[in-house]
Simulated assay, not measured.
Amino acid sequence: MTESIRDPEAFIRAETLPRPVPLVPEIRLYVADEAVPIWQRTEEQLGEIGLPPPFWAFAWAGGQALARHVLDNPDIVRGKRVLDFAAGSGLVALAARRAGALVVEAADIDPFARAAIALNAELNGLDAITPCQYNVLGRDEGWEVVLAGDIAYERDLAAEVFAWLEALAARGAAVWIGDPGRSYLPRERLTRIAEYGVPVSRELEDSEIKRTSVWRPGIAG
């Protein structure tokens, strides 16, 4: 095992650069220039193939839209205990904390993501953001607000995640979802709250401006 894998922070610092987020320039993240090279280097360093993409190394469209919405509507999180689910880089968690959340838990099962979240919090001078060391899916720790960006990639996992989010909403948590039209988003069970044009890389998406919506569980009307 190389030194950089024993120290994920060193790997992140070596493979990324701090840059402002296109739709959320108030926040900077350690991001990669290209997806494939950092994906390959991660697999090489870990000695594994077929790993999922390094979601923590990019500002994805769903997270950008959700972060923008939270910053523009700070009452969503102000003074509240917040969970950022599948946090990746921690962008949405950072936006929540900057908007006045009392404390934010940023949950991601990837240890590189947890390291990136800590680095990005430090980069932005934000405290009270805790990278979760456990899988929160299916749990209820009394969060008042749950934020989730880009979580509808895979059918079976999306079904499990949305059933859990709906259960949290049913007991009173305010659940907000950012999604740019992924295949497994259950639109018929959601209400669209806002829409944004998010600048993204053509390497990651099918257009340079991705129409991305913010949703909440429940049917409008």
Rank of each mutant, 00 (worst) to 15 (best):
residue 164 W to T: 09
residue 54 P to H: 08
residue 73 N to M: 00
residue 77 V to Q: 05
residue 171 R to C: 01
residue 10 A to K: 12
residue 18 P to D: 11
residue 129 I to Q: 10
residue 35 A to Y: 12
residue 39 W to G: 04
residue 97 R to E: 01
residue 193 I to K: 06
residue 153 Y to K: 06
residue 92 V to L: 02
residue 190 L to H: 00
residue 55 F to R: 01
residue 209 I to D: 04
residue 98 R to A: 14
residue 24 V to M: 01
residue 217 P to C: 02
residue 87 A to T: 04
residue 207 S to M: 13
residue 185 L to D: 09
residue 98 R to S: 07
residue 171 R to N: 00
residue 162 F to C: 14
residue 106 A to D: 08
residue 17 L to V: 12
residue 87 A to C: 09
residue 88 G to D: 01
residue 133 Q to Y: 01
residue 144 E to A: 07
residue 138 G to Y: 11
residue 4 S to V: 05
residue 172 G to Q: 12
residue 140 D to N: 15
residue 54 P to Y: 00
residue 105 E to M: 10
residue 101 A to D: 09
residue 143 W to N: 10
residue 41 R to K: 08
residue 141 E to Q: 11
residue 79 G to N: 06
residue 167 A to V: 05
residue 187 R to P: 02
residue 94 L to D: 00
residue 193 I to S: 08
residue 75 D to Q: 02
residue 29 L to N: 11
residue 151 I to H: 01
residue 98 R to I: 06
residue 83 L to G: 00
residue 107 A to V: 00
residue 18 P to W: 14
residue 188 E to N: 14
residue 62 G to Q: 05
residue 168 L to R: 11
residue 97 R to I: 03
residue 47 G to N: 10
residue 162 F to W: 11
residue 33 D to A: 12
residue 155 R to C: 05
residue 135 N to S: 06
residue 13 R to G: 05
residue 34 E to L: 13
residue 210 K to Q: 15
residue 186 P to Q: 07
residue 39 W to S: 15
residue 140 D to M: 12
residue 23 L to P: 14
residue 197 G to Q: 14
residue 43 E to T: 11
residue 36 V to R: 01
residue 58 F to L: 14
residue 24 V to G: 08
residue 87 A to N: 11
residue 188 E to W: 10
residue 156 D to G: 07
residue 147 L to S: 04
residue 155 R to K: 15
residue 130 T to Q: 02
residue 63 G to E: 00
residue 87 A to K: 03
residue 175 V to H: 11
residue 146 V to S: 03
residue 54 P to W: 01
residue 37 P to Y: 15
residue 164 W to Q: 12
residue 143 W to I: 04
residue 203 E to L: 12
residue 179 D to C: 06
